[in-house]
Design a protein around this nucleic acid. Structure first.
Length: 897
RNA sequence: GGGCGAUUAGCUCAGUUGGUUAGAGCACCUGCUUUACACGCAGGGGGUCAGAGGUUCAAGUCCUCUAUCGCCCACCA
């Protein structure tokens, strides 16, 4: 046993056990009708991803749930996989190409995609390997990728199904456009951030009188090049008379009309608003209603085009500066005011979004949202913490159509084909007020390329070049990972068994992107919820509360923490620090807690293993247990009950604290210390209890700290199989003994008092003392006498006398609590003044407390309203306080004399 | 403009349905090479629970308002 090192070294342990678990297929889960299923689908990390603290937290929770369920005899499946992450991945590969001086256009679509697949081949499993370091017990043989052939079939199937139902349409709309990525984005992909900007007041002269103007206010002056009207509110007295008049658009010289619309806010700016239908969603609506010209002034890359006159070729922000200068020179810039505005930013590259008119594909969301709203309202799906339900419902009830087409190459290409012949014959596609394409001629939606056009039999057919939003594949994750819509027997069996899944664990920023859409897809395609519980955890931040990001340089790399402190330390620290749903502020030092705890577990185990031989342990018989053994079993079962309850309720940090408290402060601090002498004297029952407690504790902690628990487990006598497949401990209520708990509390406070007295009296730590304990009742006396050897051992006293109400010995210092007074024979000098002041303080506190309590008990309202239990409690408290006060006063008076 | 969260010890945070003297980890102070562990042991100091009002026999906990910080949503050009 001596080969066990003094310090726990996770490096020697973790990889070994992970390999063992994988080699023995312990993460594997197939449909098994003899067991209940428990399934979690992993939030698929991006293939470009590297493990960060957010992943560490997210996956630790999932692993805890899965391991807990597995040990509770569920058929537990954690379905892993990665997401192709369209824009993100394309950006990574394009950056790589740029280093070679190439663009994706240089390669062409096909060659570029080959490059991406090659990249994926090389780096795509990085994050999977990192999850393994964390201890994630996913069924890796099932690992899915959103661009797998089967998965892509599911995506196409879904597109076609929605198209057939009229829920997908192509339309011209002002959408969020990223000029850097050069693609459309959904509203969720263009989060707004507030900027300190300006409101510019521009003067537009009248056609018939160039010395008169209408002043408009705008935050994006460059868009004036595309103006096709100025709008005012018809009720606005200032402008009423101008309705229908013509203005000359400065710099461009185009004639534009003044129109009236109720949408215009008279109080904002000047009350007159420039209308740019191709570059603003509101103006677009106005343009539709008033039949205005849609003038697109910009190329997809944010450079102004030939509609921009002499500003053609300039970047949108350079053009803004120049236009302002020019207007100023012409005397047409009235003023500039500081103005806060919130602007959309590309969620991938943070470039400012351009509202941009283009033809895109959309999903009509309102019909999909309905069952998804009901499911949450009727609690078929529950959020933890529940406050997220409101956020979810608010979004769902105001849901907008979803722009799903992206002008990039990496992703699922739209299963849409165009017949050139039909398109040429068809009139320009007309769009009705709902943005639905009315004339579908020429559009063919199909899983594979049709050989000829079903309408005209032409073979001049080409595929739409757009790909689908990444989330258009992710929203199918809970069932497409099982192989839906294929009809193989195995796939159907698995789906039926594991779907709906049990819990989904994710961060709040993913609720709209993914959680909400999965719920909608679940109802639409599986006719059922995708999961019943959604656990939303907080965001991991640095110690100043900032999000961790590479650019801020405030990242704590989980892999560093693992290599320095171990995966168990990482997991345990994260979970204990993070309270339900709150953001967590991290610094490296915080992981010391987990490391220290692992080390404590290690050393306590080392101690037990050094003292327990390989021989068969005696059976534990309740009747043969002594007080401390009964006590620790009571505490163990109390802990077991609470931890199980907490894990079922997603109270992870509570369970971590519970386990920490039990193991460190009850088992190690008291039981092992007390047990040392019993071990020395060869008491077999104590050894059996030690081993039992350790075993049960290891099982309890295993979901949180899988590696160290497995390592120690494997070293225990008579252990042959993995702790992973042990049944999770169940609390035995009969062993929870409140009376013993109270008695031990009494004993513990007695020991603490003695130790405290020692320090106060400056008695050297090792010096044996003579201790007299006076108790109030015979019952207490008997109890203490049964523990008298332990008392001596723990207080290092040479002689100990217990008695009922002894008289105070001369030359002694003393200390008291309600049930006892302790006297230490005084030798040499002691700091009496210090003693007195301590006692005075104690007296003050007690007197205050007694006053409060008796006031309460004299209050008739209190007696009338408070439950009996509380009244009794207060009466008891008054008694014990009085009792203690009396004792302390005696000590005080004696000492003073 | 709406919504949510936070404000408790020097720091980071717990505190279940209101009910004894408000807890933990870290940091701090005093001791300790006590043969499991200094990543440790023993003892200790430290809080007007952001502020104001209210409900109640009883408020850190419930209600209202205020302040500060943070996050999310929203087509104020």
């Amino acid at each position: 046993m001596l080969e066990i090192s003094k310090q726990y070294n996770p490096k020697e342990v973790e990889d070994k056990w992970y390999k063992f678990w994988e080699d023995n297929n312990l993460f594997k889960a197939a449909a098994n009708l003899d067991k209940k299923s428990f399934c979690i689908v992993i939030p698929p990390p991006n293939v470009t991803g590297i493990l960060h603290m957010g992943h560490a937290l997210n996956n630790t929770y999932q692993d805890i749930l899965i391991r807990f369920a597995r040990m509770n005899n569920f058929q537990a499946l954690w379905m892993p996989g990665t997401d192709h992450a369209g824009i993100a991945t394309q950006n990574v590969v394009e950056r790589q190409l740029a280093k070679e001086g190439l663009t994706r256009q240089d390669l062409g679509r096909e060659k570029f995609l080959e490059r991406v697949w090659a990249w994926r081949q090389q780096y795509g499993s990085t994050i999977i390997n990192q999850l393994k370091k964390l201890g994630a017990s996913c069924d890796w043989q099932r690992t899915r990728f959103t661009m797998d052939e089967a998965y892509s079939q599911a995506v196409a199937e879904v597109f076609i199904s929605l198209w057939d139902k009229g829920l997908i349409y192509q339309g011209d709309k002002v959408i969020n456009w990223c000029p850097r990525c050069q693609t459309a984005l959904s509203d969720e992909e263009a989060p707004h951030q507030e900027l300190e900007s300006h409101l510019y007041y521009l003067k537009y002269p009248f056609k018939d009188n160039a010395s008169e103007f209408v002043t408009v206010a705008t935050t994006r002056p460059e868009t004036m090049l595309g103006d096709s009207a100025v709008a005012i509110n018809p009720k606005d007295r200032r402008y009423k008379k101008f309705i229908g008049k013509t203005l000359i658009l400065p710099l461009i010289g185009r004639e534009i009309k003044i129109i009236a619309d109720n949408i215009v806010d008279m109080k904002f700016g000047t009350g007159a608003v420039k209308v740019t239908p191709a570059h603003d969603p509101n103006d677009y609506a106005l343009g539709k209603i008033h039949n205005l010209e849609f003038i697109n002034i910009m190329n997809p890359n944010g450079i102004l085009n030939n509609k921009a006159g002499r500003y053609q070729g300039l970047d949108r922000f350079k053009a803004r500066q120049l236009i302002l200068e020019d207007l100023k020179n012409l005397g047409l810039l009235e003023k500039i005011e500081p103005h806060k505005l919130s602007v959309g930013h590309c969620y991938r590259c943070h470039t400012i979004i351009e509202p941009y008119l283009s033809r895109q594909w959309f999903v009509k969301m309102k019909p999909l949202a309905k069952p998804a709203i009901d499911a949450v309202k009727k609690a078929k799906i529950k959020f933890y913490p529940s406050r997220w339900e409101k956020v979810y419902l608010n979004w769902m009830e105001n849901i907008q159509d979803w722009c799903i087409s992206r002008q990039i190459w990496w992703g699922h290409r739209l299963p849409v084909y165009y017949c050139n012949t039909c398109l040429q014959q068809a009139d320009e596609l007309t769009v009705n007020s709902e943005q639905l394409i009315v004339n579908k001629n020429g559009i063919i939606v199909s899983k594979t390329k049709p050989e000829k056009c079903p309408t005209c039999s032409s073979t001049d057919i080409y595929q739409d070049s757009d790909v689908l939003d990444t989330w258009f594949s992710s929203w199918l994750w809970p069932f497409a990972t099982f192989g839906w819509p294929a009809k193989d027997e195995k796939i159907i069996k698995d789906l039926k068994y594991f779907y709906p899944t049990s819990a989904l664990v994710t961060a709040p920023e993913i609720i709209f992107f993914w959680v909400a859409r999965m719920i909608m897809a679940g109802f639409e395609f599986m006719k059922d919820i995708p999961f019943s519980d959604v656990y939303i955890h907080g965001t991991v931040r640095d110690i100043q509360g900032k999000k961790m990001s590479k650019s801020l340089g405030n990242i704590i790399d989980p892999l560093d923490v693992i290599s320095e402190y171990g995966a168990d330390a990482l997991r345990f620290s994260l979970v204990s620090i993070t309270s339900t749903g709150q953001d967590v502020f991290l610094s490296k030092e915080k992981f010391e807690m987990g490391r220290n705890f692992a080390n404590k577990i290690w050393n306590a185990s080392r101690f037990i293993l050094m003292n327990v031989s390989e021989q068969a342990l005696v059976n534990i018989e309740a009747s043969k247990l002594n007080i401390q053994e009964r006590w620790i079993l009571s505490r163990l079962n109390n802990c077991t009950a609470r931890v199980s309850k907490q894990l079922k309720a997603y109270e992870f940090s509570e369970s971590a604290k519970q386990l920490y408290e039990f193991f460190w402060h009850e088992f190690c601090d008291w039981f092992i210390e007390i047990a040392k002498e019993d071990i020395a004297s060869g008491r077999q029952m104590t050894k059996a209890v030690l081993v039992l407690c350790l075993k049960e504790f290891l099982k309890l902690i295993h979901p949180l700290m899988p590696f160290i628990s497995e390592e120690i487990w494997s070293r225990l006598p008579n252990v042959t199989s993995s702790i992973m497949i042990e049944p999770y401990p169940v609390s035995n209520a009969k062993l929870i003994d409140k009376k013993i708990d109270r008695e031990m509390e009494f004993f513990i406070s007695l020991i603490s008092r003695v130790r405290n007295l020692r320090v106060e009296a400056s008695i050297e730590p090792q010096k044996p003392i003579n201790c007299l304990v006076s108790v109030d009742s015979k019952k207490d006396l008997e109890f203490l006498e049964s523990l008298s050897a332990k008392f001596k051992q723990l207080t290092k006293s040479e002689t100990t006398t217990f008695a009922i109400k002894i008289r105070r010995p001369t030359k002694a210092i003393a200390s008291a609590e309600s049930g006892f007074t302790i006297y230490l024979k005084l030798e040499g000098t002691t700091d009496i003044a210090n003693q007195l002041s301590k006692l005075e303080k104690q007296i003050d506190l007690l007197e205050q407390s007694i006053k409060n309590t008796s006031d309460r008990l004299e209050n008739k309202e209190f007696l009338k309203n408070a439950p009996e239990e509380i009244v009794n409690q207060q009466e008891e408290k008054l008694e014990t306080d009085k009792n203690t006060l009396e004792k302390i006063k005696q000590i005080y008076n004696a000492l003073r004399d």
